[in-house]
Design a protein around this nucleic acid. Structure first.
Lengths: 338, 338
DNA sequence: GAGGCGGGGTTATACGTAAAACTTGGAGGC
DNA sequence: GCCTCCAAGTTTTACGTATAACCCCGCCTC
C-alpha cells in the first residue's frame, strides 16, 4: 500500500492492479483497444476506483503540452451581462472538455496588472472583451490564440472577433422612437472607451441625421446608477426645450435616468421616453418596464468559445454578427402623450 | 537561437545568458542571493526579457506539488451577489499569488457533473456555496481542503465555514417592521434547499412568536422575478385580511412582489410594506427604493478566501460571522398609512 | 520446422522546472 | 605551504503522465 498521506498516482494504481504504469495510462486514457485484455482493463479500472485515483493534471498538462484551459478577460463580473457571457462560454467549453478561467480587469482585482500571472492556470488561449482594454497590451505580447469580443473588426490585428449586432439594435431603437414621433433626443452615453460604445454613438447620429428636424445632445456617465442619475438630471434640467426621448447606452444607465426623471417630477413615458440596452433583470423590475434591446449574453459567450475552439483547431471561426432584438415595453410612447 | 516556433524554456534563457538552467531558476525565483553574482543575475534577467520567457506553469506545478489555484463553487454566476463573491475572493487570491477558478453548478454549465473535470485546473483547495448542494457530494469525496460558505456550522463535517450573519439581518428586519406597527406578515421565501434560507424562516418565525397578536403566512417561489410575481400575487389576493408586511428572502423576490402589488393596484408602502435581502443594484432602481439588508458579497468572498488560505497554511481560520446591515428606504412605513 | 504476425503487455523517455548535492577556483589564516 | 572556507556556479534528480519503442509467446502459414 502506497503512502496514504499523499494522493495516489498512476503508479500506485498499477501496483494495486499488478500491471505497469503504462498499462494504467492506456486503460484510463481509453487507448487500450487491442493493446490490453478486457479482463486486465477491468482490473485497472477497479483499482483506480478503489484508490480514488485522480490523474495529476499538472503532470498531464506538462506531458501533453496543452491544458484545455482558456482565459476569459472581462471588464467586471459584477454585471449580469458578463456573468452571462461566462456562463455561455463555460458551457461550450465543458462540452469540449475545456475549462474557463476568468480575469476580471484590474479595477476589480487589485494591483496585479498581469492577467497571466493572476490566472495561475496554464492556458491554451484567450477570449477578451474589448472593454477590458488595459489588459490587452499584456495579452498581445503573448502568442496565445486570441478571440476578441465586441471589438473593431479592423483594429484587432488579425485576432478573430465575435460581435453582437449592436448597430442594428441602435437602428431599431432609433426607428422605433422616430416612428413614435420623437425629434428631440438625449443620448446618455457610457463613459467607457470601447468600440461597442463608439458604434452606438455613431449609428444613432447617422440614423437621426437622415431625418430632417431632429436634434441630439449627448452626455456621458460611467456605467453606474448613481452616476447616470446625476448626469441625466443635469441634462434634463438644462435650459432650452427638453428632449422627449432619452436613449441610454445600457440598462443601468436607464435605471439612473428613471431616478433622475422621478426626482425632476417627470413622468415616463408621458413626459419623456426612455430606452436601454442589454435587457437585464433590471429592465422588467423598473416601473414602467423598460423598452430595451435584448442581448443574448450566453449566446455571446458560446459563440466566443466556439470561435476560440475553431482557432485552436486551425479552422476558420464562424462569421456573422449575433442578432439582437428590440423589446418594446412601457417606457416609450409618442411625445406629449400627457 | 532556440526553435522559435515553440515557447522559450528556462533552458533557452540559460543558453542565451551563457549559464546553466539551474542558475536561471535561482535568479528568476529570487533565491540567488549569495549564490549568483549580481552581474550574472542581470544577464539572466535580460535574456529572459529578450526572449519573452514565461515559466511553464504546468511544469512548475508538477515540480512544486501545488498550484496556487482554488476552485469556487457557486450556484450560478448570473447573479450580482455571486459575481461579487468571486470578485472578493479573486482579489485576496491575487494578493497571495493565487488564482480562482469557477464552477457554477450544473444547471448553468451543461451535463458535466464533475466539478473537478470541468474546471481543468489542478487545484489546491475548494470554496463552496451551500446553495450548490448537488456538487458537494463529489467534492467531499476528494480530500482537498474545503471552506463552505453560508452552511450549517454543525452539518459541514469538519469543513471550515464562513457565514453571513443572516439571522441578525432577519432580526433587524423583524424589529423594524414590528416597531412600525405591523402584525400581519407574509413571508415570500426562496424555494431553494439551503441552510441560509432555513435560517431566514426560522429566525423570522421566532421573532414574531415573541410578540403576541402577530400572524405569518409563508409562500415559496424560485428565485426569479417572474416566479415571485405569480406567487406573491396569489398570496396577496387570497381571502381573509391582507398582510401589511411582505418579507422577501431576497431582492429579486422583492422585485417580483413589487410587480404583484402594482398589478393588484396596491401601493407600496401605503397598502403594503416590502423588505428584501441582498441590497443589489436592483434595490435602488425600484420605486420606491427597497428597504433591505445589505450583504457585503465581496467581503464574503474575501473572508472565504482568507479562510481557505489559513487552512492551507495549517492555521485556524478567523471565526465570527460577517455583520450585515439593515438599510431603511421607502418601501416600509406604518400599516394603513394611506 | 522456420518464419511471420498479432495480441498483450513492459521498458524507457521526455515534458520544464526547482532544488539538493556536488564542484571549482581563489582568498585568507596560521 | 597547506588547510579551510566561501562565492559562484554546475550537475543531477524528481515530480506524474503519455506514448514510442521494444519484447515475448503462442499460433498460423508455407
Amino acid at each position: 500500500m502506497a503512502r496514504s498521506s499523499t494522493r495516489p498516482t498512476s503508479r500506485d494504481v498499477a501496483q494495486a492492479a499488478g500491471v505497469s504504469q503504462a498499462a494504467v495510462s492506456l486503460v484510463l486514457g481509453d487507448k487500450w483497444r487491442g493493446r490490453v485484455a478486457e479482463a486486465t482493463a477491468e482490473r485497472v479500472r477497479q483499482a483506480a476506483r478503489d484508490l480514488g485515483y485522480r490523474p495529476n493534471l499538472a503532470a498531464r498538462n506538462l506531458r501533453l503540452g496543452r491544458t484545455r484551459t482558456v482565459l476569459l478577460v472581462v471588464p467586471a463580473l459584477t454585471t449580469e451581462f458578463f456573468a452571462g457571457v461566462y456562463t455561455g462560454a463555460a458551457r461550450v467549453a465543458a462540452d469540449h472538455g475545456f475549462g474557463v478561467v476568468l480575469y476580471p480587469s484590474p479595477e476589480g482585482v487589485g494591483p496585479a496588472r498581469d492577467p497571466f500571472a493572476s490566472a495561475q492556470a496554464a492556458l491554451d488561449g484567450v477570449i477578451a472583451s474589448s472593454m477590458a482594454a488595459d489588459a490587452l497590451t499584456a495579452i498581445r505580447g503573448d502568442q496565445l490564440p486570441l478571440v476578441m469580443l465586441d471589438s473593431d473588426p479592423e483594429g484587432s490585428l488579425g485576432a478573430a472577433t465575435v460581435n453582437l449586432d449592436i448597430a442594428d439594435g441602435v437602428r431599431q431603437v432609433a426607428a422605433h422612437l422616430l416612428d413614435l414621433g420623437h425629434r428631440r433626443f438625449l443620448h446618455l452615453a457610457a463613459d467607457v472607451p470601447s468600440w461597442t460604445f463608439e458604434v452606438r454613438a455613431r449609428e444613432l447620429a447617422a440614423r437621426l441625421a437622415a431625418v430632417p428636424g431632429t436634434s441630439i445632445r449627448t452626455v456621458r456617465a460611467p456605467i453606474s446608477i448613481e452616476d447616470a442619475l446625476t448626469a441625466a438630471a443635469a441634462a434634463l434640467a438644462a435650459p432650452g426645450p427638453r428632449p422627449t426621448a432619452l436613449v441610454c447606452d445600457d440598462d443601468k444607465l436607464a435605471a439612473g435616468a428613471y431616478k433622475a426623471a422621478r426626482r425632476l417630477g417627470l413622468r415616463i413615458p408621458d413626459d419623456v421616453s426612455v430606452t436601454g440596452l442589454d435587457d437585464l433583470a433590471l429592465a422588467t423590475a423598473l416601473d414602467p418596464e423598460l423598452t430595451t434591446v435584448r442581448l443574448d449574453a450566453e449566446l455571446f459567450g458560446e459563440r466566443g468559445m466556439r470561435a476560440l475552439l475553431a482557432v485552436l483547431d486551425g479552422r476558420t471561426p464562424e462569421g456573422g454578427d449575433i442578432p439582437v432584438e428590440l423589446v418594446v415595453r412601457g417606457s416609450t410612447a409618442p411625445p406629449g402623450a400627457s
